[in-house]
């Protein structure tokens, strides 16, 4: 292995990624299995409830109630969106994974790969690979849903149950840009959280978000910020979201490279 390149070496990156994947494959598979179980259980329960209550409209429209246009669009599409936000949040919180105790931090920091390679691996894993694998779990869920309500569980809507093309549903969404930007933002917050808190990052980041949210709201109330401010902020929400997302990633990188064996994450180098 050539270690002369101290920033990035593809063979070393591949060796590092292979090591990390192999060492954690059981954990990753278990996480995916848990996600599939969770979405299947809640999705089937929700679907059953919809099929029991919406059979009259299904008969009128001659289509699956999950494809009805509800308040904000197709129910199944909203369900998929929500699922992706959840996956982005969950996997974002695993960006600095495998560093939750001293022994693991020593092993991770002392592994002969560059800081950039370690960070890029975490970023690719949590923002690309795992969400794509989550998409696979969605496909599996859709097959289970279709088979369950077409052949196993009898509901008043059995004859209208249809198999939905989830990737097409996402790609054809007219608000796909804003949705992806939102995913990027939420993911970046939890990536930052995982770099700050190596242990229980998901919960600690959620608490931090709530704390910051209430702090901002109460400050705005105390200072007496006009409603125009919020209207203007909402109109430029895409720009603000993108900027904050990039800032979160930069901060996450800086904190990640300063990680230490004892939880002192802000140090001069």
């Amino acid at each position: 292995m050539n270690t002369s390149n101290d920033i990035f070496s593809l063979p070393r990156f591949v060796a590092f990624a292979k090591k990390e994947f192999t060492e954690q494959r059981r954990q990753l598979l278990l996480q995916l299995g848990t996600l599939l179980g969770a979405i299947t259980f809640t999705g089937l329960a929700m679907c059953y409830g919809v099929y029991q209550s919406e059979w009259a409209r299904a008969a009128t429209l001659q289509c699956d109630p999950m494809a009805f246009s509800l308040a904000n669009g197709v129910l199944e599409r909203n369900w998929v969106r929500l699922w992706f936000v959840f996956a982005a949040v969950l996997y974002g919180s695993l960006a600095a994974w495998n560093m939750e105790n001293k022994a693991k931090r020593i092993a991770r920091i002392m592994t002969p790969a560059s800081q950039q390679e370690k960070f890029i691996f975490g970023a690719i894993l949590t923002t690309l690979i795992m969400p794509l694998l989550s998409l696979l779990t969605l496909e599996v869920y859709e097959i289970i849903r279709y088979v369950t309500f077409s052949y196993v569980i009898d509901t008043p809507c059995r004859e209208y149950v249809q198999f939905m093309n989830i990737p097409a549903m996402i790609v054809n969404d007219v608000k796909i840009g804003g949705f992806l930007l939102g995913l990027f933002f939420f993911n970046s917050i939890f990536v930052l959280g995982s770099c700050i808190w190596h242990n229980k990052a998901l919960f600690k980041t959620l608490i931090a978000i709530l704390a910051v949210y209430f702090l901002l709201i109460s400050s705005a109330v105390l200072v007496g910020v006009s409603s125009n401010f919020f209207i203007k902020a909402t109109s430029s929400v895409d720009f603000v979201t993108a900027t904050l997302g990039v800032i979160n990633w930069i901060l996450a990188y800086c904190i990640f490279t300063r990680a230490e064996v004892v939880g002192r994450f802000i140090n001069k180098k």
């Binding site: 292995m1 270690t3 002369s4 390149n5 101290d6 070496s9 070393r12 060796a15 292979k18 090591k19 192999t22 060492e23 954690q24 059981r26 105790n101 001293k102 022994a103 693991k104 020593i106 092993a107 920091i109 002392m110 592994t111 002969p112 790969a113 560059s114 800081q115 390679e117 180098k269």
Partner: peptide, 30 residues
């Protein structure tokens, strides 16, 4: 600076350690 060349020349055996759920051959190869 945690350069890979430095990390590849220093090994720390800590007091407390965890090993992955791998065979010895896999661990050594990876």
């Amino acid at each position: 600076d945690r350069r890979p060349s430095t990390l590849a020349d220093v090994y720390v055996v800590p007091e407390e350690l965890e090993m992955p759920r791998l065979s010895l051959r896999e661990f050594a190869t990876l």
